[in-house]
Simulated assay, not measured.
Amino acid sequence: MSISTGDYTITAAPVTATITSDNTVTKVYDGTAVPGYVPSVVFARTDGGTLIPNEGTNSLDQIAAWTAADFTYSLNGTTVANPTDVGTYTIEFSDAGLAKLAAATNFAVTPVYLGTYTITAAQATATLSTPSFTYDGTTKASDETGLFATVNVLAGTGDDGGSTVKVALTSDDVSFTRMAQTQSLMVIV
């Protein structure tokens, strides 16, 4: 009778970790960074198994609770630490989030980025000053001074209210179009 020795290998179970946001995460542009949003992370086995991270009692299967620091944002392939501008950002795991996934050593976790955070444009109205002068047969567009636009940004959901800004314009910012006996002012942005 002979006895042989050998190794018994247990490999990490393949799992996806999908970031989801239910396509409902939006805010209206207000010039401030995204608040401490924490998306959902859904685990799924890719080999037909049933045990996933945070199930069972083995400490090597556990992942600490997610925080906002576990995620970062990407716009057109560029990482954005604190999104403030209008756009739809892909939510990704930050280095801290990836470290949490790696800590569940009984699983080979593949991140899947399906979550998005959208910042929509704020609604604004612009009211132009109404210069006037007596018609004398000469062009007035290049002579006009004191032009301005009052821009009123309407409050969006979750922000602290709208704002109003007065913007000075030069003759290069506007064009004049003659309409019968009057000239109309049109802003060129």
Rank of each mutant, 00 (worst) to 15 (best):
M1C: 05
M1R: 05
S2I: 02
S4A: 04
T5D: 00
T5F: 06
D7A: 04
D7C: 00
I10A: 06
T11L: 05
P14Y: 07
T16V: 07
T16A: 04
T16H: 04
T18D: 03
I19R: 00
I19H: 04
I19M: 04
S21L: 01
V28Q: 13
Y29W: 14
G31L: 08
P35I: 04
G36I: 00
G36C: 00
Y37C: 00
Y37P: 02
V38N: 01
V38W: 03
A44I: 02
T46C: 12
D47T: 12
G48W: 11
G48T: 05
G48Y: 10
G49F: 08
T50H: 06
N54S: 03
T57E: 08
L60E: 10
A65V: 08
A65F: 00
W66L: 04
D70A: 09
F71Q: 01
L75R: 14
G77Q: 02
V80T: 06
A81W: 08
P83H: 10
T84A: 12
T84Q: 11
T90D: 09
E92S: 01
L101D: 05
A102M: 06
A102Y: 03
T105D: 08
F107W: 04
G115Y: 00
G115Q: 02
T116I: 07
Y117F: 15
T118F: 09
A121Q: 10
A124W: 03
A126N: 06
T138Q: 14
T139W: 15
K140D: 08
K140F: 15
S142K: 13
S142H: 05
S142P: 03
T145A: 08
T145N: 04
T145Q: 11
G146I: 08
L147N: 10
L147I: 08
N152P: 01
G156H: 10
D159E: 09
D159Y: 06
D160W: 02
D160C: 02
G161Y: 14
G162E: 10
G162I: 13
K166M: 11
A168S: 15
A168Y: 12
D172R: 02
V174M: 05
M179V: 13
M179R: 11
A180H: 13
S184V: 12
V187R: 15
I188S: 13
